[in-house]
Design a protein around this nucleic acid. Structure first.
Length: 158
RNA sequence: CUACAAACCCGAGCUAUCGUGGUAAGCAAUUACCAAGGAAAGUCCGGACAGCAUAGGGUAACCCACCGGUGAACAGCCGGCGUCCUCGCAAGGGGGCAGAGAAAGUGCCACAGAAAAUAACUACCUCGCAAGAGGAAAAGGUGAAAACGUGAGGUAAGAGCUCACGAAUAAGACAAGUAAUUGUUUUAUAGGGUAAACCUUGGGUGCUGUAAUGCCACGUAAAGGAACGCUUGAGAACGACUCGUUCAAGUUCCAGGGUAGGCAGCAAGACUUCAUCAGUAAUGGUGAGGCUAGAUAAAUGAUAGUUUAGAAACAGAAUCCGGCUUACGAGGCUUGUAGUACU
RNA sequence: GGUCCUGUGGCCGAGUGGCUAGGCAAAGCUCUGCAAAAGCUUCUACAGCGGUUCGAAUCCGCUCGGGACCU
């Protein structure tokens, strides 16, 4: 029976509510403080912060600092500007493709580095008017995440 | 047969792998089920629902405008009346109509033309040698539009000035029809168009929108500055203004600080499928079935295969319904127009 | 989600129902030894469709584009 073999496989290619960058305030903070890198037509905005930095900057009661210290936090969002994509159908299409690509590349990124004690926020923006194929977008996301992983290494050492 | 146009139907199915939102079960891992549209769009109308107000009058603003029906309601829909366009020899067919009032008043009508609404250039008649004065509104020409049409009488010349026939408008009576209206008849009238110019008449309309609203949690600054006022009344409510009524000791503005989490609203309804009955129809009644999205940086996707002539078009729910408008692929079916071929 | 404004040549911009001003730019000519400046000439427009009217950039309806505001 194939169903038994499926049960054994661990679920890793996920993109659930906990993985999504949902808080309005957190998103505004990310756009204000975050750094960016480009892999045209996709732009990645990110923040990488340790628990100590967070507690100094953001004394919010909603931040579960203990949980971050133990497990780390990785949240990501995607966006397609309504100025370049006027139709809601096209915006949805772009966001779905970005989410799908991130979902498939995420396990490799997680395996590259332990997250304990760090909060990592990502936001992927699509900046062109023409929509690339699914394989191309996944390739771009892969490049971005590899570069981010190198950056993360230098930060965590320091 | 081909092309175009219009109306209607339909808006892909299945399999595999990896995933998304919700509901239910489970301690959990997980499992099962459900998961965008005909327009979800534009926001052009009409409602439901919620909060505030309910003490109103006048003015203003906005909307509607042949009649009847339908319906929760409507500028929608259905049927009829009138009118215009078009096809046709005709009978009749098809399509459009913001379809009250120009005889309450005001304004406007370029150019041309004598004159664009109290008519008079040429021509006509009378008087006069002439210049000109008076009469009259038939003929000419201009214009989008020129002061009822034809014939006869009448006259100096003419004129609805009079008469006959015809056409028009308004009012009354009678007949048909629920009514708009139509027919007959009587009386009166001769006033060009424009109300999608102001306007008049009749009818109607509280305001704000689910990010409404109610509750829970967390946090801050009950501090500072300015203006007005405390019964000689600042200000607030009654959508605007005003009158009036009620409340009233604080109110408004500036700069700054905090939060931006959760629950309800929120998914079974003017719902929908089939059958049947009433009705010309829109639509309604009855019976039997169905449950059919509910997110909050916001869910349906990616990859591969397959069926097929092809998988493509327009396009993504955000409180919910009824309409209207606009966008749209392939195929099917019906109608119309044009062309070609055959008889 | 809701409300409102706006669209006139390549650009800016006037236009109260009657022939769409003006400026800048572009092209050509004159002037000059060559250019600049100046002068003359030309070119290119009422967002689209439909309606009202004798006549529409203007009035009305629908559509498309641009912008602003509220929460």
């Amino acid at each position: 029976m194939p169903s038994t073999s499926i049960k054994i496989l661990p679920k890793i290619f996920t993109y659930q509510k906990a993985d999504k960058l949902k808080s309005r305030k957190q998103t505004q903070y990310l756009f204000a403080k975050g750094q960016s890198m480009n892999a045209f037509p996709i732009k990645l905005i990110y923040t990488i912060e340790s628990v100590e930095q967070l507690s100094a900057v953001l004394p919010s009661p909603f931040l579960n600092l203990a949980d971050i210290k133990e497990n780390g936090q990785l949240q990501a969002g995607v966006g397609a500007p309504s100025r370049t994509f006027r139709k809601a159908v096209l915006r949805n299409r772009v966001k779905r493709l970005l989410r799908e690509a991130y979902r498939l590349e995420k396990p490799a990124f997680i395996a590259s580095k332990p997250f304990q004690g760090f909060r990592v926020n990502l936001f992927f923006l699509y900046t062109d008017a023409t929509i690339l194929s699914s394989a191309d977008i996944q390739d771009k996301i892969k490049q971005l995440l590899m570069r981010l992983s190198e950056k993360f290494n230098t930060i965590s050492k320091a």
